Amino acid sequence: MNRRTPPLALALASLALLGNLGLTACSSEGIAEKATERALEKAAEGGADVDIDSEAGEVTIKTDQGTFSTSGKLPANFPAADLPLVDGEVLTAASSDAEGSRGWMVMLSTDLSTEAAAEQARQKLLDAGFATEGEDTGMSNSDAIFDVRQYVKDPYSVTFSAFGADDGASVNYLITVK
């Protein structure tokens, strides 16, 4: 089973996000959104249904390979009760439901140091009953910590990284359903 996000969805998401950034400067957002949606759908040769909502900061792309959506809040289908995250503000979150696999990407901003953010992420997963698979072969320095172990708890698999930011750290999660 291929668990990668479909290339078409990734390409369209990138284009939609770039287009969405420019929409906030437009006075006729509804017209600009529809034009961007149609242009992306045409670029996909009719193989995608694109919905951009600049007021909510959301982009959704549906293809025959699945659905990809992103916003500055946790997706409605994110299993927050099962997946504890670092205390902080959601910067971006995406969900993908493609070819029978499901997953989420979440980026949070926290005022914790890089080391403290990584430790909180690790400890919250362990406290929620996640077990680690593999040895920590990640890299770390004062600005970045890559914990490349998988944290698993049926049916989820989680990896995370923490990066230094101006006033704290950014923590990135990649969550897949096994």
Rank of each mutant, 00 (worst) to 15 (best):
A13S: 11
S14Q: 15
S14A: 15
S14K: 11
L15A: 14
A16L: 09
A16M: 08
A16S: 11
L17Y: 11
L18S: 15
G19C: 07
N20I: 14
G22M: 05
L23Q: 02
L23T: 00
T24V: 11
A25L: 13
C26V: 07
C26S: 12
S27H: 13
S27G: 14
S27L: 14
S27V: 13
E29F: 08
G30E: 13
A32R: 00
A32H: 02
E33N: 07
E33G: 04
K34C: 03
A35V: 08
T36Q: 06
T36G: 05
E37C: 05
E37M: 03
R38Y: 07
R38S: 13
A39N: 09
A39E: 08
A39T: 11
A39Q: 10
A39W: 04
A39D: 08
A39C: 11
L40C: 01
L40F: 05
L40N: 01
E41K: 04
K42S: 14
K42A: 15
K42P: 01
K42V: 14
A43T: 04
A44Y: 04
A44V: 04
A44E: 06
E45V: 10
E45T: 09
G46E: 06
G46I: 03
G47T: 05
D49L: 10
D49R: 12
V50T: 05
V50N: 00
V50A: 03
D51T: 04
D53G: 08
S54N: 06
S54E: 05
S54Q: 08
E55I: 13
A56I: 03
G57E: 08
G57N: 11
G57M: 10
G57L: 11
E58C: 10
E58V: 14
T60M: 10
T60L: 07
T60G: 09
I61K: 06
I61Q: 01
I61G: 03
I61N: 01
K62Q: 14
K62Y: 06
K62P: 01
T63R: 00
T63D: 00
T63E: 03
D64W: 05
D64M: 04
Q65P: 00
Q65F: 06
T67G: 01
F68A: 02
S71L: 09
S71E: 10
S71I: 07
S71A: 15
G72S: 15
K73E: 15
K73G: 14
L74D: 13
P75I: 06
A76N: 14
A76M: 11
A76R: 13
N77M: 04
N77E: 10
F78Y: 14
F78D: 05
A80M: 07
A80R: 08
A81D: 15
D82H: 06
D82P: 04
D82E: 15
D82C: 06
D82S: 10
L83I: 12
L83D: 00
V86W: 00
V86S: 06
D87A: 10
D87V: 04
